[in-house]
Simulated assay, not measured.
Amino acid sequence: MASIDEETTSAEDDEPSVLAAGAICWRKEQGQLEVLLIHRPRYTDWSWPKGKIDPGETTPECAVREVEEEVGLRISLGIPLASTRYPVASGTKLVNYWAARTERMVVRPDGKEVDKFLWVTPTRAAELLTNPTDREPLELLVAAHEDDQLETWPLIVVRHAKAKPRSSWTRAEGERPLAATGRRQAAAVSRLLEAWGPSRVVSSPWERCVQTVAPYLKNKDIKLKLADSITEQDAARKPDKTRSTVEKLFDKRRPVALCTHRPVLPVVFGVLRQHLPEALAGALPAEDPYLAPGEVLISHVSSRSHGRVVAVEQFRAYDD
């Protein structure tokens, strides 16, 4: 499965008037898959945790925030699921969904928007769901479970935020910092990365890359691993070392973000492409500039089949 960036998602013939996001929280109980349903007293319905996007927010950020606000769970997103569309008073509502494993976390309904919850089997959930369109993401979640594609970890590629122009920089290239816009983008990148919560960050040691991930590192209180092999200079001279650095990320099998430069992205994506099944062959950007400054690409890697990427998606951090 693959998802596309949210700008493209909303650019269909039926332009949505309302954009929202949510998640299907799932767990295993004695080997049995269960999903979390919520009851909303205002609508007297059973559905998934979801809500409208706030100004300056991306859909992944919205999904994580809404789940926490409605049921008290702080989640990390898994694979993208189906986006649903249905008519509302103002036109069409588009809701983007993700899977989110929750283990044995405590559910606390907010008592206002949500007054009850149930952990149920997917079969029972399909029976209880009030809106028929809510069954679409559930069907994809079940299919992913049956294909051993539901348990994943994220490998995230970040292009550094907007830097000061090369033409106006007279010192060493590795010291060229972010522009003022880039510093704001870096804060937005941090908020976006929180949706997947990588516990490791690997970066080019050049200043603009380090500055891009610095806000996330500070918020999460984790250490940064620097890799000369993913600088522009080393990737051009010794691309095999660059490839080796990326390949080792798969061996760790832990959520990770890698921050690098535009000229290095073809080498990075070349490694990722080797881990994609044929159905996802076109999921990676293939043309320069590959990613915009501050944009991220998320590869969801199977926890059960080593090195197998089962979904790809990309998002731009909010840019003011």
Rank of each mutant, 00 (worst) to 15 (best):
E69G: 08
P277E: 11
A186S: 13
C209V: 09
L141V: 13
P198E: 06
V301C: 12
S229M: 08
S229Y: 08
R253G: 07
R254G: 05
R191K: 10
L192Q: 03
L140C: 01
W98V: 02
R308E: 15
V210S: 00
S90D: 14
S168C: 04
G56S: 08
V114C: 01
L118W: 07
E6H: 09
S17D: 15
T92F: 10
A281Y: 02
Y43P: 03
A236H: 13
R200A: 11
K112F: 12
S83F: 01
V106T: 07
R108F: 09
P255A: 08
Y290N: 10
Y43S: 11
L141S: 08
H300N: 14
Q185P: 00
E66G: 07
E313N: 11
E113C: 02
A188E: 14
V114M: 06
E151V: 05
L73P: 02
K241P: 00
E103I: 03
E69I: 03
R74A: 11
A235W: 02
R101E: 04
D110T: 03
S47E: 14
V158D: 07
V301G: 14
R176S: 10
E295R: 13
E113I: 03
L77Q: 02
H145G: 06
L249A: 13
T8F: 08
L36C: 04
S190H: 05
D147I: 05
T130E: 14
S3H: 10
R208Y: 15
E69P: 02
T181Q: 15
S167E: 11
E29Q: 12
T92S: 08
L36R: 10
P109N: 12
R208Q: 15
R243L: 04
D5T: 06
Y216I: 04
D54H: 06
K220H: 12
R159G: 09
L297H: 06
K248V: 04
D147E: 15
D13R: 15
V18M: 09
K116M: 13
Q30G: 15
A144C: 10
D288Q: 11
S83V: 07
A214P: 00
E29N: 12
E295P: 07
G78H: 02
E175S: 09
E70I: 10
G22C: 00
D228M: 08
A257C: 12
R135W: 01
V157Y: 05
P285H: 04
A186P: 01
A11R: 12
R176W: 05
E287G: 00
R316Q: 14
V106L: 04
W26N: 00
N96H: 13
K164N: 13
R42W: 12
I298S: 05
S83K: 09
T59V: 15
G31T: 04
I156C: 00
E66P: 08
Y43M: 08
T170Q: 13
A292I: 01
R135T: 10
P80I: 10
H39E: 14
K162I: 12
L192K: 01
R74Y: 01
S83I: 07
D115A: 14
A227I: 04
G182D: 12
V107I: 15
